[in-house]
């Protein structure tokens, strides 16, 4: 039963460890892997989603599954792609897209500004085994004081480690002595690596590619997304503050870095079916329910209106649990 609600499910590790085993324990779930959702079926008389068209990933057989309500949870890009590929006469530019915002406001965290430095001393000490942890520096820009150069901010992840053989690529030398040096740990170094908030921008968007299809014949996506002035300013500021903190901590040979990563590398895509109070400017309401199609829910990164600067999975999970609770309540009331 639950499987029919979750036609397209992003299998995150946490789902595998927690919610899926719990669902399985109810005895009411059918898990059907190798199911590629092609599009959503829409009934114009009831104005409801009645199911999904599926392509079997192994046999390529075309199938249809029906359900009372429908949850899309296929990731920000894929959920939007499925709906863009589900146009009807009522929704000529994608199902549940009367606002025109479906596929718009694509965001990802801008990462890769920071700095490294060597921490002198403690050469007789090392960690054993695989260290499971690092540090996190919560956002400090634009919290109490307004920064003149940009809005919002960024957090840092980082850790302190002894350099290993990888330092050899930047060391001069080769041969037996070089090999012997690399067989021993190098100095301690500390790295701050920044993750910044991306602002929603209408011009960062996805659309169906009219020229190309994927392996199952579904139109591929064309992705239009670039860092704008604010993200670039955040990245630059990361290099400055990371260097300042390392300097204050007594690090030596501080090296700021500023990677030119494309949007998407942080794999925190979100924003392509944003929530909002006004159906004219948003796709979903506060319960992840489509304004235009009441029994359609999207519970992945697509719903996000802004990106903050923290890892988003826990937020998606919380919103999903909340949306499910709402849907169950609506079903009990007979409104869905």
């Amino acid at each position: 039963m639950l499987a029919r609600l979750h036609y397209a499910l992003l299998l995150q590790q946490r789902s595998l460890n927690s919610t899926l085993p719990a669902a399985q324990a109810t005895g009411k779930i059918t898990i059907r892997p190798h199911s590629i959702v092609h599009s959503v079926i829409f009934d114009r008389s009831t104005r409801k989603a009645t199911g999904v068209r599926v392509i079997d990933g192994q046999t390529r057989e075309a199938l249809e599954f029906r359900g009372r309500i429908l949850f899309l949870c296929a990731s920000a890009l894929e959920s939007a792609r499925i709906l863009l590929n589900s146009s009807t006469t009522e929704f000529s530019n994608g199902l549940a897209n009367s606002s025109g915002e479906l596929g718009r406001n694509l965001m990802d965290h801008c990462m890769g500004g920071g700095a490294t430095g060597l921490i002198p001393g403690n050469e007789d000490k090392i960690t054993l085994g695989h260290r499971p942890n690092g540090i996190y520096v919560p956002r400090f820009r634009n919290v109490k004081e307004k920064h003149p150069g940009f809005v919002r901010g960024y957090g840092f992840q980082g850790d302190g480690v002894r350099q290993n053989w990888q330092r050899g690529a930047w060391m001069t030398g080769f041969g037996a002595d070089f090999k012997h040096t690399l067989s021993r740990p190098g100095p301690w170094m500390f790295t701050f690596y920044g993750f910044g908030e991306c602002l929603p921008n209408h011009e960062n968007y996805i659309e169906l590619d009219t020229q190309r299809v994927d392996a199952w014949g579904v139109p591929a996506l064309k992705i239009h997304c670039a860092w704008r002035e604010n993200e670039r300013a955040l990245l630059k500021d990361m290099t400055l503050t990371a260097s300042e903190m390392l300097s204050a901590a007594g690090a030596k040979q501080i090296e700021p870095f500023l990677e030119d990563n494309a949007p998407g590398l942080t794999i925190h895509e979100m924003g392509t079916a944003r929530m909002g109070r006004d159906p004219k400017t948003s796709v979903l309401n506060a319960h992840n329910q489509a304004h235009d199609v009441k029994n359609l829910f999207i519970t992945d990164g697509a719903c996000m209106t802004s990106s903050a600067c923290v890892n988003p999975s826990l937020t998606y999970m919380a919103l999903t649990a909340r949306a499910c609770d709402f849907a169950v309540d609506q079903m009990k009331r007979g409104e869905l």
């Binding site: 050469e123 000490k125 090392i126 960690t127 054993l128 085994g129 053989w165 067989s183």
Partner: peptide
């Protein structure tokens, strides 16, 4: 060369070299 283990025999946050 590095005496590393895929499954480490033990963990320590601060050990002597």
């Amino acid at each position: 060369e590095r005496h590393e283990h895929i499954i480490p025999p033990r963990h320590a946050g601060c050990a002597s070299i």
